[in-house]
Computed example of a mutant assay.
Amino acid sequence: MSNIAYKSDFTGDPKQHDTSKFSESMTGTCLCGSISVTIHDKELFGEKPRGHFHCANCRKVSGSFVSSNMAIEKDKVTYMDKNGTLKVYDDWATGSGKRVKRLFCGNCGSPVMSQPDIFPHMYMLKMGMFPRIPKPECESFAEHRHDWQGKHDGLKQYALIRGQKKLGE
């Protein structure tokens, strides 16, 4: 057992952030703090299109077995790049064949958002950068889920793309 003591905010315990603090907006940052993203939405913790994405590209970008994203209109988001570290990767290896711009911090490597050409008015925000993650409402590419993952009860499960064929249909 380690004797290392951690500051209470170091681990980023989301329960220390009451959701009522985010009634108008919520700001998150990349790991080094160079990039900040603010969601301006009074319905942030209401019914928003957000979910877990199991496609290979989203998994690679997240560095995990799933990517937690929120699709939101661009006019409800502001972002700042105070140190000029925002980088873009143009991903053309997508199921639609259309480009997805993948934005990340060139300093710390944190994923920030995706901008899919098929939804030009939307950002896909990477929810891991925010102090609280609203409950997901669906899983996309659920048929790509690993067998050991199990299922998330209460979430709509789309075989591939959100809004299309559900898993098991």
Rank of each mutant, 00 (worst) to 15 (best):
P49V: 07
G128A: 01
F65G: 08
F10H: 10
F119I: 02
G150P: 08
K166I: 09
R162L: 09
L167H: 15
G150E: 13
K165I: 11
I161T: 08
K151G: 13
F104Y: 14
R132V: 03
E169F: 05
G33R: 06
W148S: 15
A5Q: 15
T38M: 01
S23M: 00
K101V: 12
M26Y: 04
D9N: 06
S34V: 05
R99E: 12
D90M: 08
G33K: 07
F45G: 03
P131F: 01
S114M: 07
S23V: 04
C30V: 09
G150R: 08
T94S: 14
M80S: 14
G95H: 11
K87M: 14
T11H: 10
P49C: 03
I4A: 09
T94R: 12
Y6M: 12
M124L: 11
F22T: 02
S67Y: 10
P120K: 05
E137I: 10
G46Q: 07
T27L: 02
D91F: 07
H121M: 08
M124R: 10
G12R: 06
I72K: 10
S114C: 10
G109C: 07
T11W: 08
M1K: 13
M129S: 00
G12N: 13
F65I: 07
F130K: 00
L155H: 08
D90K: 12
G95K: 07
T85S: 15
S96M: 13
C108R: 03
D75L: 05
F22A: 02
F141K: 13
D117L: 07
M26V: 00
H54Q: 03
T11L: 12
L103F: 13
H17R: 09
C105N: 13
C32G: 13
W148C: 09
E24Y: 01
D18C: 04
I118C: 13
D90G: 08
C105Y: 09
I72R: 01
I35E: 05
R50K: 09
F53L: 06
D75M: 03
D9R: 05
G168F: 01
E43Y: 02
W92L: 11
V37K: 01
K48D: 04
C58W: 08
I118R: 11
Y6N: 10
P14S: 02
A142K: 03
C105K: 10
D81C: 08
Y123I: 00
K165N: 14
K7Q: 13
Y79P: 07
S34H: 01
E24T: 06
Y123A: 02
D117V: 09
I133D: 11
D153W: 04
S68H: 06
I39A: 02
S96V: 10
V66F: 06
R162P: 12
G63F: 11
E47K: 03
S68M: 05
D91P: 06
V112E: 04
M122D: 10
L167P: 15
